[in-house]
Design a protein around this nucleic acid. Structure first.
Lengths: 354, 354
DNA sequence: TTGTATGCGTTATCAT
DNA sequence: ATGATAACGCATACAA
């Protein structure tokens, strides 16, 4: 694959028979103070345009931000298969926390690199330290995790939602969440619990599923039925649930691995003429911003995302500050948020959130 | 504000009385092939850790990616007040389109910079070209637009959702969207139309509002009532709508400037015991992924976002390729998507999307 | 009106 | 076992 052949000032200079500094001056609109002849200016500008000259930002930064105060580079690395809001959330958190007094003195810029799930290893600069001073890494799948565990990233790194030996990470107690979900459905009277998840599995989702399997079976005596959706979207949830309901299998409780899947499920359930929570109690995960406002409001678990990202960013900054050096594991608590969608059975009298 | 004083290899070298190249070797784990004494290695590593040495990524890249093929830098610039999904969407689109055969030869990395609405001017490197080779800019407010119109960014730039003189931009026909919304509500029998928007206004939202005002008044004979929410979230929509309904003002049709505001409104409307679309027809904007699945499915306008971002990215790449040089305006069409929430009156028989 | 030289921080090559 | 030096691309002070 031929990547873009970058043209440098020097090559322009040779081509035009004009000195480097003249070119540079023109390209930076210093033509007047440098009193370059209009003719030369034209020639340079035209050549630059024709040839598609693009300055080397690294060189410019090296030159401009010198004097012991250049911005460091923080990378956000995630797979294409990530739930879409993740990047925004992490970046916004980075910028927000970075503005706090405590970290005001960290002058940084943020880059984002994405990889196909299973192919972190192909990310340029991951191991050689040529692309970032520090990184937040999310949405790796086990293949990636293996690779990362076997290799060493020499910059400070925080993993979001997964544990990689020798690195810092921020996680939720995903296994426990799955178990709690099973408990809540059981308390709402569900004896035929079903779990709906995406076929894209990560450490966190696997843990949730396993936790649910264990307690659901222990409590109800039935192995929970598992529905696998194609992805995380509402559409994926709708389609998976519709197929399931059409099959006629028993269900009286539903745990979804994300709130978006629950939203899609709602629609399928209602179209089938079933009522939530009367016929099917539903609990999601993540407390999406829409969850309190759908009909009925969705029981779920706290937006671990928010806290996760916040904790991850803080942990990274602390490592950069030198406040923490050892790999550190942070566990973010996840709390159930009970709303109408599980208001049934012995759990009906619990305090409702909205 | 004291920014981080970066330590360089040279300073470490002076401090330790060891040569620069030795330090570099140790820091890159070349100690064995270079046969540095274990003692020196220790000293260097410790000093680096203590002093918080962070390599200058620009220097490293300059050194490493030389030979006429370094990655160019594409920046995504947006305000903190942007709807959260925007960044993710733009970045994902960048990566996806960048992987297409046509653009495979553009080797780039992505940086994200955020600014407070109204303060683009404070973004480092915006005008001096030290931070990016090309940029996608979104969610500026009029103050920002003014500044940008008066100054010159010398790199290729594409504005998303707004027009800035002398620059390329990708927009929707927002004004038309507003008018169509008014038409649709009117056709659904609404004579007391209401518009709900966020107090944070951009070129696009302003145009939508104006379009709606015009046609709503023309058609219904009544100036539409305007509700102003604090922001774009479902919660903001819920609260604004709840207050409005509590006030007892007339309403039989609602146009919201984003789908998220509509979702929040739904909840307020239902809590008030009113029915959608029977009592209030609702139409949103943006075709959010949840909109087809809420109850009732929400009429809206096509996810202009998606197309917008896609077009913006393509336009930027074309400029980088030299395929386009003049500032270019692209207008992305927006189509109404009619679902249950407006199924009333003469519009009831229109084809329904889901 | 234009060119030469220097240095930003880093790594690799070559000496010692 | 370690140091000196050149070069990456660019912008500027200074020279011509």
């Amino acid at each position: 694959m031929e990547k873009n052949k970058q043209v440098t000032i020097r090559q322009l200079s040779k081509k035009l028979g004009v000195s480097i500094s003249t070119i540079s001056s023109v390209l930076n609109n210093r033509q007047e103070e440098r009193r370059i002849s209009p003719e030369t200016v034209k020639r340079v500008q035209q050549a630059a345009r024709e040839i598609g000259y693009l300055p080397n930002i690294s060189a410019r930064m090296l030159r401009s931000y010198s004097s012991s105060s250049y911005p460091i580079t923080i990378a956000v690395l995630t797979s294409f298969q990530a739930p879409l809001p993740l990047i925004s959330s992490v970046i916004t958190t980075l910028q927000r926390v970075g503005n706090e007094a405590e970290y005001k003195d960290i002058n940084f810029n943020v880059t984002v690199d994405m990889f196909e799930a299973g192919r972190v290893k192909e990310l340029p600069g991951l191991l050689d330290g040529t692309r970032f001073n520090a990184a937040l890494i999310a949405n790796t799948i086990p293949t990636d995790d293996e690779f990362l565990a076997e290799n060493v990233i020499s910059s400070p790194v925080v993993f979001i939602g997964r544990d990689i030996p020798h690195y810092s990470s921020v996680k939720t107690v995903a296994h426990m969440t799955g178990r709690q979900a099973a408990d809540i459905l059981y308390s709402s009277g569900s004896r035929n619990p079903v779990i709906l998840y995406s076929k894209i599995l990560t450490q966190t989702t696997i843990a949730r599923i396993e936790g649910f399997r264990e307690d659901a079976e222990k409590l109800s005596g039935n192995k929970p039925v598992e529905i696998v959706a194609d992805g995380f979207t509402e559409k994926n949830g709708y389609e998976a649930m519709k197929n399931f309901l059409d099959s006629g299998e028993k269900i009286d409780g539903l745990y979804t691995i994300t709130d978006s899947l629950a939203v899609g499920s709602y629609h399928a359930v209602k179209k089938k003429g079933l009522k939530i929570p009367d016929d099917i109690a539903v609990i999601g995960t993540g407390d999406s911003s829409v969850s309190p406002y759908i009909d009925p409001p969705l029981s779920t678990f706290t937006r671990s995302q928010y806290n996760l990202h916040e904790e991850a960013v803080r942990l990274l900054f602390k490592q950069l500050n030198g406040k923490i050096s050892m790999p550190t594991q942070v566990v973010v608590p996840v709390m159930p948020v009970l709303r109408e969608s599980t208001r049934r059975g012995s759990i009906a009298n619990f305090e409702i959130d909205i």
